[in-house]
Amino acid sequence: MSSRNSWQNKQSARERLKTERARQARRSKLRRRLGIGAVAVAAMVAAAAGVVFASSASGSDEHDDWARIPADAAAKPLKTPRNVAADGITVPYGDPRNGRVLAVYEDPRCPICKMFEQADGDEVRALADQGKYRIEYHTATFLDRTEDEHGSKTALAALGAALDQGGVPKYLAYKKVLFENQPEEATDRFADTNYLLDLAAKVPGLKTPAFEREVREGTFIPWAVKTGKAFNNAKGRDGKPIGGTPSVLLGGARLNVLTQTGPVSPKDFAAEVERAR
């Protein structure tokens, strides 16, 4: 690759990171201005869920050829995926006896989360394998900003099906595939269950009839809504809301995982973990 192309790629990554940070900052500023607390925001998300899926089922969306989750999925009784952590929300990785917890917050539609997973995801898990900590994966759905956007919840519900049918290994493998094939944020293509199922075929052994049924029926949509509400309520050790994704906390203390040009390197992530107390 020429030095010019390399420079252009760095510029593109820098601009995407700057744009995403600005978007999240505007969202946090608006919430503070309106005086909406985390509990109220969570209630708004839950109340909006039924409207979101009813809207998509009505065919009002411009993508009428997409396969949609049934309109009543959000109103179904809560079903928690098997293999989820004891809190019913997070996905565990590592030795459960390890008292040091690394909390990773991400959104399936977040482009910076994709960059972080691709740059540091393997190192994050390798350090857990070495006993440095155990991981709790938290998933946000705040990028579903309007009634016409619900790909974060639909993708999270599909991840819940992967966790339910294949355990944590299939969940992580599918999450990696989703990030590798993450659509442009404006398209919201994760709302298409056919697309999610096509991607599931890339994970050996995942696309079983039971998995496909759970994805198409939106079995874990209520769980996805609950998980999104938990993110809205989550705070770090400093008492401040998590605020955006990706966010990584070790023992409740925030780690610096982003630079002006993108995620830190795996080496720098490991050094950040060693410095943390």
Score class of each variant (00 low, 15 high):
Pro92Trp: 10
Val215Arg: 05
Tyr195Gln: 08
Arg21Met: 07
Thr139Cys: 04
Thr146Ile: 03
Gly99Thr: 11
Ala186Met: 05
Thr208His: 08
His150Ile: 02
Gln24Val: 05
Arg275Val: 04
Val215Trp: 10
Val51Ile: 12
Gly167Pro: 11
Thr141Ala: 12
Pro111Trp: 08
Ser2Gly: 14
Leu30Ala: 13
Ser60Lys: 05
Glu117Arg: 14
Ser55Gln: 06
Glu15Asn: 09
Val257Cys: 02
Val84Asn: 07
His150Gln: 11
Gly35Lys: 07
Gly88Pro: 13
Glu214Arg: 10
Gly59Ala: 02
His63Lys: 06
Leu255Arg: 01
Ala155Asp: 08
Asn98Cys: 13
Pro108Met: 01
Arg97Ala: 15
Leu172Ser: 02
Glu62Lys: 07
Ala271Ser: 07
Lys175Ile: 05
Arg213Gln: 10
Ala158Ile: 02
Met1Glu: 04
Arg216Phe: 03
Leu172Cys: 07
Asp65Ala: 14
Val84Ile: 14
Val84Trp: 11
Leu143His: 12
Arg213Ser: 13
Val51Glu: 05
Val84Lys: 01
Leu143Glu: 10
Thr19Asn: 13
Asn98Val: 12
Arg21Asp: 04
Gly160Val: 06
Thr208Gln: 12
Gln118Tyr: 02
Tyr171Pro: 09
Thr259Pro: 11
Lys207Ser: 15
Gly228Ile: 09
Glu184Ile: 09
Gly160Leu: 06
Val91Lys: 02
Leu30Tyr: 11
Gly243His: 11
Thr80Pro: 00
Thr219His: 06
Gly167Trp: 05
Glu136Lys: 07
Pro108Ser: 08
Asn194His: 15
Val104Gly: 01
Phe211Gly: 02
Ala46Val: 00
Pro246Leu: 06
Phe220Met: 03
Ala22Leu: 07
Pro266His: 04
Phe190Tyr: 15
Trp223Gly: 04
